[in-house]
Computed example of a mutant assay.
Amino acid sequence: MAAPFPVPRSLRWLCSALLLAGLMLGGLQADWDFAQISRRAQALYGPLGEGQQRIDAWQQLLATQKQTPELEQLKVVNLFFNKRVRYVEDIDLWRQVDYWETPIQALWKGAGDCEDYATPDAMPLVLDSLIDGILPASQRTDLLPVYSFNAEGLWLPGAKGNKKVGDTKRLSRWQDVLKKMQAEGFPVETTN
């Protein structure tokens, strides 16, 4: 996941934790109990209002895309969130300079900004809140990766490729997202 950086909105990518979780169309969502997640979200955030409809639609999307090829899943997920989550700066939405929201928080609010993801040994695909098409990062010269991470570690970009510099324990905001998702009822493991 590449960190956000201070650039104009037109240069930001959207994928955030919400798309990271949205892309987990493989095995993990099989453990997701959306009835429990909705109950916990209501307990944490209050009435979900239209957010409940967005959460239900996300559950439906996950259920219907299991057998779809991966690139098509990416397209469907990207369009789903581009249509349902409008871009709003963290300071305006959460009254914080940088806030990493969970997928449920983004769907509840119907808004969010950008945090992104990539893998260290492959050309990342960019899912962008401003562009419905999915392009390899090499074709997005308007973007500058700051760092990337996945379950295996944290990498910094460099002239000779990405350099592993640690693990996700160093990313307190990511750890916070995992804790919030766990509180919402997602079966995620946090590292302390």
Rank of each mutant, 00 (worst) to 15 (best):
P4C: 01
R9P: 00
W13M: 09
A17S: 15
L18S: 09
A21V: 12
M24R: 15
G26T: 05
G27L: 08
G27Y: 10
G27Q: 08
Q29L: 05
W32A: 11
F34H: 10
R40D: 13
Y45S: 08
Y45M: 15
P47F: 04
L48G: 01
Q52I: 02
Q53S: 15
R54H: 03
I55Q: 03
W58V: 03
Q59N: 11
T64V: 05
K66G: 11
T68A: 06
E70I: 13
E72P: 04
L74N: 01
L74D: 01
V76H: 06
L79Y: 04
F80N: 07
F81M: 02
K83E: 15
Y87E: 10
D90G: 14
I91T: 14
V97G: 07
W100A: 15
W100Q: 13
I104F: 08
A106P: 09
W108I: 09
W108S: 04
K109F: 07
G110F: 02
G110P: 05
C114K: 02
C114T: 10
Y117M: 11
A122L: 11
A122D: 10
V126A: 13
V126G: 02
L130H: 15
I134G: 08
I134M: 12
P136C: 06
S138Q: 09
D142P: 03
L144H: 07
P145D: 10
F149I: 00
N150P: 00
A151T: 07
L154H: 09
L156A: 10
G158N: 01
A159D: 07
G161T: 05
G161R: 03
G161H: 04
N162V: 01
K163P: 00
K164N: 07
V165G: 00
G166T: 02
D167A: 05
K169V: 06
K169P: 00
S172C: 00
W174N: 06
M181F: 01
Q182G: 03
Q182R: 10
E184F: 04
F186P: 02
P187D: 07
